[in-house]
């Protein structure tokens, strides 16, 4: 019996040696993230499922070339991003990203906003998300991976297969465009948080 969960490197080692159970654990661990990434890229649930499954199969077949000691997550993300790109829906068929209907993200302890304030906040966010959907592909993906997947700059660069400087400039151009689009809104401000 294992006393602790195996880390990625140990799982990779075992999977590369033919232990399919170890690879099952990798799939279990990363399926949510890979599906989410694929959905952001492809804009469709079926396409995202297909891309994520294919990415796991391809990654398994490439395990012998995975550099031991390097992080697994960006490598998997890069594979799934490419798979999802190949399955991307045409612009007219793509489902724009949307907010969940019942949004319940408030941390305990946050002051509950008045119904009016909550509605206004939601409206602002929907407008911002619509503006993200309208961004050019390069900027949209950089923003989506940085903020909606929560990747850092290096991981975003790796997943999208571009230089880190390219991510930096795409994010900054994208943010500038969003501020411009939302010129009249509170969201457009630079904010006061550090």
């Amino acid at each position: 019996m294992e006393g602790r969960p195996l880390d990625d490197a140990e799982l990779v080692e075992r999977a590369a040696a033919g232990d399919l159970g170890a690879y099952d654990e990798i799939v279990r661990r990363y399926q949510g993230l890979l599906f989410r990434a694929a959905y952001l890229v492809s804009g469709g649930a079926d396409e995202a499922e297909d891309a994520a499954q294919e990415a796991f199969v391809k990654a398994y077949r490439s395990l012998h070339r995975f550099r031991r000691g390097s992080p697994l997550r960006p490598w998997l993300l890069r594979i799934v991003t490419n798979e999802a790109r190949n399955r991307r829906r045409s612009a007219s068929r793509r489902t724009g990203l949307a907010l969940r209907a019942a949004e319940d993200r408030r941390l305990a302890g946050d002051a509950a906003p008045s119904p009016e304030a909550a509605a206004l906040e939601r409206e602002d966010r929907e407008r911002l998300l619509a503006a993200v959907n309208e961004l050019g592909d390069g900027e949209r993906m950089a923003i989506a991976y940085r903020f909606f997947l929560g990747l850092d700059e290096a991981e975003t660069a790796s997943a999208l297969g571009v230089a880190r400087g390219t991510v930096k400039s795409r994010v900054s151009r994208g943010l500038a465009r969003l501020r411009l689009e939302l010129g009249a809104s509170d969201l457009a401000g630079e904010g006061v948080e550090p």
């Binding site: 799939v27 649930a45 923003i143 903020f147 943010l175 904010g191």
Partner: peptide, 25 residues
Amino acid sequence: NLETTLFEIGAGLDVPEHADFVAPV
């Protein structure tokens, strides 16, 4: 703050449910 709001939007995104990939993979 725009960036903070984007992170929050990410947490509230409507991402569909997906099948468990372990068995098919």
